[in-house]
Simulated scan of single mutants.
Amino acid sequence: MKSAFALCLFLLVGMSGNSYAAERSPKHYVYFHSRGQEGRGIQADKSLRDTRFSGAQIVYTWRTLEPSKNRYDFSAIREDIAYLDSIGKQLWIQLQDKSFTPRRNVPDYLLNDPRYKGGVIKQSMLSAPERDPNKPPTDDEYGWSAKIWEQTVRERYQKLVQQLGKEFDGKVAGINFSESSIDIGTENADGTTTFPDDFNPQDYVDAMQENMRVLAASFTRSTPMVYLNFVPGEWLPWDDKGYMRSLFDEARRLKMGIGGPDLMPYRKSHMAQTYGFFREYPGALVKGMAVQDGNLRQINPRTGEKNTVNDIQDFAEQYLELDYIFWAKDELSDEMLKELSDEGT
């Protein structure tokens, strides 16, 4: 197989809009869920200086980028671009409205002004695949998601996206939304889910599509990407409401990149959903996925053993044909880096 860490040429062909062609030897980015105080976590990271990595994918929360209504603070992004430029690397933005801890990643005005109807909805990550099954449930595993299906909330989010595009389109490698999965509602004995009164899966899908259109229009030189993994109210292939397919179809129409968290080779729960749709996605358009915390702890159904870097690399290149792999900083142990080094020789 082709080495994922050989120097590769990533061909960007200006077809129309956000359309790209790529030789399928993916670019590698270090994923940071936090930049640390004043960006020190980024600047202190030694793996970023490794020639196998093209740059950093960094999470920026809506809350930090818009500290108060209509007051935007993009200083952290500017600082990170300047630092990465100085070492010959690129920035990839992950715009985060969801959280998987008690922290809310939206501005306070969304929470306090009644026109935003609470601004967020409570969710849980107890079923997340990256969760350590030996860890007892605790309150810190409950997070929050912005109510993007509420028009007032969605308009504010879209304004943020547009402001980011005005300043950073063409200055960053790409930008992606947080994942489509939102874990809410109560599962019933018959397998159905009872959702909160203020949530409807179709409204959520419609809102995501509208946000995708704004993202694609705001970033025409950098790669716009939507993270699609699961949609509430549907479980493929048994319960297909067309939600996920409609999101992939819209991404295809917009010629934008698709991505997702949790790169876990041949995982059954993902094969009929994200991975299956990735296989169908046009080869001329960008695809990327993240190796999140805990992904290497999962069992590969093909081997019966825990995932290895080689397993992930093979699956990413040969099965999904990815253009980008985002490696979580917390997964880049010395042992893993050594395995990466061995792969590249």
Rank of each mutant, 00 (worst) to 15 (best):
A4K: 01
A6I: 13
A6G: 14
V13T: 14
G14V: 06
G14E: 06
N18H: 03
S19K: 02
S19L: 03
A21F: 00
R24Y: 06
P26C: 09
K27M: 12
A44I: 10
D50M: 05
T51F: 03
R52D: 08
R52F: 08
F53L: 10
G55W: 07
Q57I: 08
Q57N: 11
V59T: 04
Y60K: 02
R63T: 07
T64M: 13
P67F: 10
S68A: 15
Y72A: 03
A76V: 02
I81D: 03
Y83R: 01
I87Y: 10
G88S: 00
G88I: 01
L91I: 11
I93C: 04
Q94C: 08
S99Y: 03
P102V: 00
R103P: 02
R104S: 06
R104P: 02
R104L: 04
N105K: 03
P107D: 10
Y109M: 09
L110T: 09
D113L: 04
P114K: 14
G118D: 13
I121W: 00
Q123K: 12
S124N: 14
M125P: 01
R131C: 01
N134A: 13
D139T: 08
D140Y: 03
E141P: 01
G143A: 03
G143L: 02
W144T: 06
W149I: 02
K159G: 11
L160E: 03
Q162V: 06
Q162C: 09
Q162W: 08
E167A: 08
G170I: 12
V172I: 15
F177D: 10
S180Q: 02
S180P: 04
I182M: 07
G185M: 05
T186V: 09
T194C: 12
D197R: 14
P201M: 05
Y204F: 01
M212H: 02
M212V: 01
A216S: 07
S218R: 05
T220D: 01
R221S: 10
P224T: 09
V231N: 04
G233S: 05
W235R: 10
L236H: 09
P237N: 04
P237I: 03
D239A: 01
D240K: 00
K241C: 01
Y243P: 00
M244G: 07
R252Q: 09
R253E: 11
M256H: 04
I258L: 06
P261K: 04
P261T: 09
L263K: 06
R267Q: 13
R267V: 05
R267T: 04
K268Q: 10
H270T: 15
H270F: 15
M271Q: 15
Q273P: 00
F277S: 06
Y281L: 01
P282D: 07
A284T: 11
A284M: 06
A284N: 15
V286W: 13
K287L: 02
G288I: 07
G288K: 00
A290Y: 01
V291F: 07
D293Q: 13
N300D: 15
E305C: 11
N307R: 11
N310P: 05
I312E: 06
Q313E: 14
Q318N: 14
L320Q: 13
L320H: 11
L322V: 10
W327M: 00
W327S: 03
D330Q: 11
E331M: 13
L332E: 05
D334R: 14
E335N: 08
K338I: 02
D342A: 09
G344M: 10
G344V: 08
